[in-house]
């Protein structure tokens, strides 16, 4: 049913959509090879290795050549810490949310229980609630819990990696559930009946038949959760503490001080990671067919 668009208007508007979408991203990536110390001016691409003439009389050593800003970034301990935090949070949160979300999807799809319709709805509402509201809510919840715990134990509690991870798990669960449920929708119960008919008990049936068959859905849910966690700013902003700065929070902090092409270099790496995750997601989606 595909036919070639023959209207010039359609072609141009489609082209413009892609230009608006990708021009900033491509520009941003090009600026990470900028031979200028601020990323407001484009001082040409860095082409040579060794001493590098910046604007004015500044000369910097650039053993990495074109990848000067990437090397500078690598020397930056704060960035490395933030990257490590971000990846730790994304891995722990996406794996936990995938496990919980998958079981939630199976329960909602398979069993009838009281308040089922309500549970289903309550799971999706956080998706549409403004993130800032969620963020403030989680902040209030944690500080209340900490006050009570301090009162009981006398110890002091503060925000940090654990609070960020817990809140990321929380906001990822609905997305995973949604994706896995879609996969289960078309799942024919007779596969499970066949396994049981052949002597497999409920647990074996789940691991040998149900799970491998819904695995593509589970994987795309996990990748979705991973990318959501990776670039979350708002909720992280409210639940982070000293030493648990993530990349989005760090970049935001950098922009308020000075803007160097280091930010661009960081963004370039980041875009490539997310891009890879999206490609993987697409690939698992296609495997469903």
């Amino acid at each position: 049913m595909t036919q070639k668009p023959n209207s010039l208007f359609v072609r141009i508007s489609a082209l413009l959509v892609y230009v608006f979408l990708y021009a900033p991203i491509i520009g941003l990536m090009l600026f990470s090879f900028n031979a200028s110390r601020t990323n407001i001016f484009f001082g040409g691409f860095i082409t040579q290795f060794g001493p590098l003439q910046m604007e004015g009389s500044t000369v910097v050593q650039s053993p990495c050549g074109p990848f000067h800003w990437f090397c500078e970034l690598n020397k930056n301990a704060e960035v490395r810490q933030a990257a490590e935090n971000t990846l730790t949070i994304a891995f722990v949160a996406s794996i936990s949310a995938t496990i919980i979300g998958t079981f939630a999807a199976i329960a909602l799809q398979r069993y009838n229980f009281r308040l089922k319709a309500f549970s289903q709805l309550a799971l999706y509402i956080p998706i549409v609630i403004p993130e800032i509201v969620m963020g403030i809510g989680i902040l209030v919840l944690f500080s209340q819990i900490f006050t009570i715990l301090s009162g009981l134990t006398g110890a002091r509690f503060s925000m940090g990696l654990p609070t960020v991870i817990v809140s990321h798990i929380a906001f990822c669960i609905p997305f995973v559930t949604l994706v896995v449920q879609a996969r289960l929708q078309g799942f024919d119960k007779s596969y499970e009946e066949a396994a049981m008919d052949l002597g497999a008990n409920e647990l074996t049936t789940f691991w040998r038949v149900t799970f491998p068959m819904i695995l593509p859905g589970v994987l795309s849910g996990a990748l979705l959760a991973f990318t959501l966690s990776l670039d979350d700013f708002v909720i992280t902003f409210f639940t982070t503490g000293p030493g648990s700065t993530t990349l989005p929070i760090y970049v935001y902090g950098l922009l308020r001080r000075i803007i160097t092409p280091q930010v661009n270099a960081l963004s370039t790496i980041w875009i490539l990671i997310v891009f890879t995750a999206v490609l993987l997601l697409q690939w698992t989606e296609n495997r469903k067919a």
Partner: peptide, 8 residues
């Protein structure tokens, strides 16, 4: 089974 239910 009617639709065979062979494990894909």
């Amino acid at each position: 089974f009617q639709q065979y239910a062979l494990f894909p």
